[in-house]
C-alpha cells in the first residue's frame, strides 16, 4: 500500500495514477474488513514467513476466508486471498494449467500443484492448509529455494545428445517413443523430490525427477551407445538409483502421473544387467 500522499496537481498523470491507486487500496481495505464470502466460505490457512518483516520472522499461519466457487482451485483461493486481503502474500505461479510447474505446494499434507487441485476434491474441503514444499528452505511465505533441485536435474545432463555422425534424419520408432512417453512429461515442479524421505536425508541423492530425466534419455534410441554408457555411469553412482527405497512417495504425488518408482527400478535392473554383462 502506498504511503505517499497524492499530489493535488491535476495535470500530473503520475499523481492521478497514485490517487486512483490509493482509492483502489481503500476500496480493497473496506472489502477486506467486511468481506462477503458467504456461509460456506473456505478457510484457507497459509504458512507465512518473511525474514525482512519483524512479525513474520517467526513462521506462523494466517487464516483467510475465501468464497466457495464451483471448481475453485487452491491457486485461485490464494490469488483471491492475496488480491483481497494481503498483497504481501507471496507464492509462485504462472500458467495456471499444470504446465509450468511453478506452484507445487504442500496442500493438506501432500505435495500438489495449486492450480491442478480443486478444493472440492480435497479430503477436507472446509479447511485448506497451504504450506511451502517440505525439505526445501523457505525464502518467503510459500516460496522455496529450488536451486538444489535444479542442480540435481542438471547433474544428469538433461539434454538430447545426437550421435556424432547420424546418417540422415534420426527417426524414433513408435515403440521407443511409447517407452519414454511418460518420462517426457516432467514439468520440473519438484513435488516428487520434496515428498522423498531418502532425498531429505541425502542431499547428494539425484532424486526421482532427475533419475526420470536420465531414464528419458538413457532409453532414447537416437542417442549413441557411448552416450548411453556415460549416462549409466551417472545413474548408477553411489547417490543415484540405489538410494531409492521404493516408498512410492514420488509416484503418489507426481502431478503428471509419471511412474517414477517404476522408472527408477527399471534403471536399477539396467545397471545390474550392464555390469554383469561379460560378453
Amino acid at each position: 500500500m502506498s504511503t505517499q500522499t497524492p499530489d493535488t496537481d491535476d495535470s500530473d498523470p503520475q499523481a492521478e495514477r497514485m490517487a486512483r491507486k490509493d482509492e483502489r487500496a481503500a476500496e480493497r481495505e473496506e472489502a477486506a474488513s467486511t468481506p462477503d464470502v458467504g456461509d460456506d466460505a473456505i478457510t484457507l490457512k497459509v504458512f507465512r514467513y518473511d525474514p525482512e518483516v519483524a512479525d513474520k520472522q517467526e513462521p506462523r499461519f494466517d487464516t483467510f476466508h475465501v468464497p466457495r466457487e464451483p471448481g475453485i482451485t487452491v491457486l485461485d483461493a490464494l490469488i483471491y486471498a492475496r488480491d483481497t486481503y494481503d498483497s504481501s502474500l507471496t507464492f509462485r505461479h504462472s500458467c495456471r494449467q499444470a504446465v509450468c510447474g511453478s506452484d507445487a505446494l504442500f496442500i493438506n499434507g501432500s505435495q500438489r500443484l495449486g492450480c491442478q487441485t480443486q478444493i472440492a476434491d480435497l479430503n477436507d474441503s472446509e479447511t485448506v492448509r497451504v504450506e511451502p514444499l517440505p525439505h526445501r528452505e523457505v525464502v518467503k511465505d510459500l516460496v522455496v529455494d529450488m536451486d538444489h533441485f535444479y542442480d540435481q536435474m542438471d547433474a544428469v545432463e538433461p539434454y538430447f545428445s545426437p550421435k556424432e555422425d547420424p546418417d540422415g534424419e534420426q527417426l524414433q520408432s513408435r515403440e521407443n517413443r511409447e517407452k519414454i512417453k511418460m518420462s517426457t512429461r516432467c514439468i520440473w515442479c519438484g513435488a516428487c523430490m520434496s515428498s522423498c524421505n531418502v532425498a531429505a536425508g541425502d542431499n547428494e541423492y539425484l532424486g526421482p525427477a532427475a533419475i526420470n530425466k536420465a531414464y528419458r534419455f538413457y532409453f532414447d534410441e537416437r542417442e549413441g551407445e557411448d552416450r548411453q554408457e556415460e549416462r549409466l555411469r551417472i545413474i548408477e553412482q553411489e547417490h543415484g538409483v540405489w538410494r531409492c527405497q521404493t516408498q512410492f512417495s514420488c509416484t503418489t504425488v507426481c502431478p503428471k502421473d509419471i511412474p517414477l518408482t517404476e522408472h527408477i527400478q527399471e534403471l536399477k535392473r539396467e545397471a545390474v544387467k550392464q555390469n554383469l554383462k561379460f560378453w
Binding site: 525474514p51 513462521p59 511451502p132 523457505v138 525464502v139
Partner: peptide, 8 residues
C-alpha cells in the same frame, strides 16, 4: 539469498 528458513 539473505536468509531462509529450514522447517526441519
Amino acid at each position: 539469498m539473505s536468509q531462509s528458513h529450514n522447517r526441519g
